[in-house]
Amino acid sequence: MHISAKADYATRALLELAREPGRPLTCEAIASSQQIPFRFLKSVVGELRKAGLVRSQRGCEGGYWLGRPADDITLLEVARAVDGELITLRGETLTGLDYPGPAAGLPSVWRRIEADAAAVLGATTLTSLLPGHTAARPARTGAA
């Protein structure tokens, strides 16, 4: 599974906003704090705003805030907001994927991997990732 730079940067930006939800942050401040390229972050934050995960205000008192409480935003939402589908195969969704003969069972493996990844990401909120958070982290699935 490939985790895109967009999903990584989007999550890191949201975690910066979640750390101090009462005050707005500029893209410059987030980019500097997280060592993210400013121009790339600007486009990622635009996608997060369209998805309702951040809100913005212009002006000298402006910046970005979370669009919802941090405990209500999951990593699954973040990934889908910036990347669309969680897993694709050659740029196509896994829906309707079908192989002939001995490879017939393979599409169900790809779909199971997608479902497992979605379950982990869907159970992980921004709040659960913040330093000092005491709630249980999502259970790991599969053999370690």
Results as ranks from 00 to 15, higher is better:
1 M>A: 13
1 M>P: 09
1 M>V: 14
1 M>N: 10
3 I>F: 14
4 S>G: 10
5 A>C: 01
5 A>L: 15
5 A>K: 13
9 Y>I: 05
10 A>F: 10
11 T>K: 06
12 R>P: 04
13 A>P: 08
13 A>T: 02
14 L>M: 10
16 E>W: 00
17 L>Q: 01
18 A>H: 09
19 R>P: 04
19 R>W: 09
21 P>C: 02
21 P>I: 07
22 G>H: 13
22 G>N: 13
22 G>M: 01
22 G>K: 14
26 T>A: 04
34 Q>Y: 01
34 Q>R: 15
35 Q>Y: 11
36 I>T: 01
37 P>K: 05
37 P>G: 02
37 P>T: 04
38 F>E: 11
38 F>P: 01
40 F>H: 12
41 L>S: 07
42 K>L: 13
42 K>Q: 15
44 V>W: 02
46 G>L: 01
47 E>C: 09
47 E>W: 02
48 L>S: 08
48 L>D: 05
48 L>M: 05
49 R>Q: 15
49 R>A: 14
50 K>Y: 04
50 K>D: 14
50 K>P: 03
50 K>A: 13
51 A>K: 08
51 A>L: 00
52 G>F: 08
53 L>D: 06
55 R>C: 09
56 S>G: 14
57 Q>M: 11
58 R>G: 10
60 C>Q: 10
61 E>C: 11
63 G>L: 05
63 G>Y: 03
63 G>V: 08
65 W>Y: 10
65 W>C: 00
68 R>A: 15
72 D>L: 12
72 D>H: 14
72 D>G: 06
75 L>R: 03
76 L>S: 03
77 E>F: 08
77 E>Y: 08
78 V>D: 05
79 A>S: 15
82 V>H: 08
82 V>L: 10
82 V>A: 02
82 V>N: 04
83 D>I: 04
84 G>Y: 07
85 E>D: 15
85 E>S: 13
86 L>W: 07
86 L>Q: 05
86 L>P: 07
86 L>S: 00
88 T>M: 11
89 L>G: 05
90 R>C: 06
91 G>N: 07
92 E>I: 04
94 L>W: 03
95 T>R: 15
96 G>L: 01
97 L>N: 05
97 L>W: 07
98 D>R: 15
100 P>K: 11
101 G>K: 13
103 A>M: 14
104 A>N: 00
104 A>E: 13
104 A>H: 05
105 G>K: 12
107 P>S: 01
107 P>C: 04
108 S>L: 13
109 V>R: 08
110 W>Q: 03
111 R>P: 08
113 I>N: 01
116 D>I: 12
117 A>T: 12
117 A>G: 04
118 A>D: 02
118 A>P: 06
119 A>K: 10
119 A>D: 07
120 V>M: 11
120 V>L: 14
120 V>Y: 12
122 G>A: 03
123 A>K: 03
124 T>V: 06
124 T>R: 09
124 T>D: 06
125 T>H: 04
125 T>F: 05
126 L>F: 06
126 L>W: 01
127 T>K: 13
129 L>Q: 06
129 L>Y: 06
130 L>S: 02
130 L>M: 11
130 L>T: 05
131 P>G: 08
132 G>T: 06
132 G>P: 07
136 A>M: 03
137 R>Q: 14
141 T>C: 00
142 G>W: 11
143 A>K: 12
143 A>F: 12
144 A>F: 11
